[in-house]
Design a protein around this nucleic acid. Structure first.
Lengths: 144, 144
DNA sequence: AGTGTTTTCATCCTTTAGTATGAATACTTT
DNA sequence: AAAGTATTCATACTAAAGGATGAAAACACT
């Protein structure tokens, strides 16, 4: 994270310096308005390119590949997260693509109960949606 | 094709007009150099974003043949299912746990469009929910 | 018996997902 | 240039998911 901040800092600094140079030269009548604007346009065109590229690359890093060496057993991760037995059970069925209603039917519980469990699961996994929970659980090896 | 040309023509025209207005006002001392440069920077930042987006979309449809023997790719499965390039793109983000809104933002599309794509994906994968789609896609090696 | 956790369920409410339909534009292929 | 496919977007609707809160019952442990 730090390199990014430093990089951006340097970039902004360079841009400010460039702008100042341009300003001074412009005031002295050395260069014309068109040139200044054109340079700014070109620079920020590429900044736009870079930003978009970054954005696209980020999404590809979201699902990181699992490593076999640090294969942490389920139970440890589950304990770390504080997941109860029932919650784990629900989580597995969630990952299998079941709806709350289906999970309730399979476990002979009410949908309300499942919703409560799901809410707790989301909280403990620190995610917002069940699809993210599935992702997280897969990365943590607590579901297949 | 014509609308694109017309669109670009209009865009360039607008930019020229804007620039001329800025130039005149600038010479009269109504606005400052910073403002002109800033506006140009912002505009071309987004132009850069747009260009890169365009570019990426084209590139993904061009190189379909690159199978790493065992791993990820699965062009065949995608073809079998009749998934389009865009649908596959959406499917990947779905599997990453993104909401429709997030996918829309990342691809610079409206949520309506994403919903349409998701619906088509669900139909083509013969499932009812996005969580099932993720499961199915994983089994078919369409996503990691 | 008392304490703390787990499991269960409910209700009200808001947000997100998903369906159906129609339509305009863009891209590809012939 | 025409035709088929793909992409985009909108609106209106229904279904599912999720948040917040409260609460009863079961269970383990001391």
């Amino acid at each position: 994270m730090r390199p990014i901040i430093i990089g951006f800092g340097l970039l902004i600094l360079c841009l400010l310096v460039l702008f100042k140079i341009a300003e001074v030269n412009f005031m002295q009548g050395n260069i014309r308005l068109e040139i200044v604007v054109a340079v700014a346009a070109i620079i920020f065109f590429f900044v736009g390119l870079y930003f978009n590229q970054r954005n696209n690359q980020k999404q590809e890093t979201i699902p990181p590949v699992s490593n076999h060496s640090t294969d942490i057993p389920d139970q440890e991760q589950i304990k770390k997260l504080g997941l109860t037995a029932r919650e784990h059970e629900v989580l597995v069925k969630m990952a299998a693509g079941c709806s709350n209603q289906e999970i309730a039917a399979q476990l002979f519980l009410s949908e309300s109960t499942i919703k409560t469990h799901v809410s707790n699961i989301l909280f403990k996994l620190d995610v917002k949606r069940r699809t993210q929970a599935i992702q997280a659980a897969r990365q943590l090896k607590i579901v297949l």
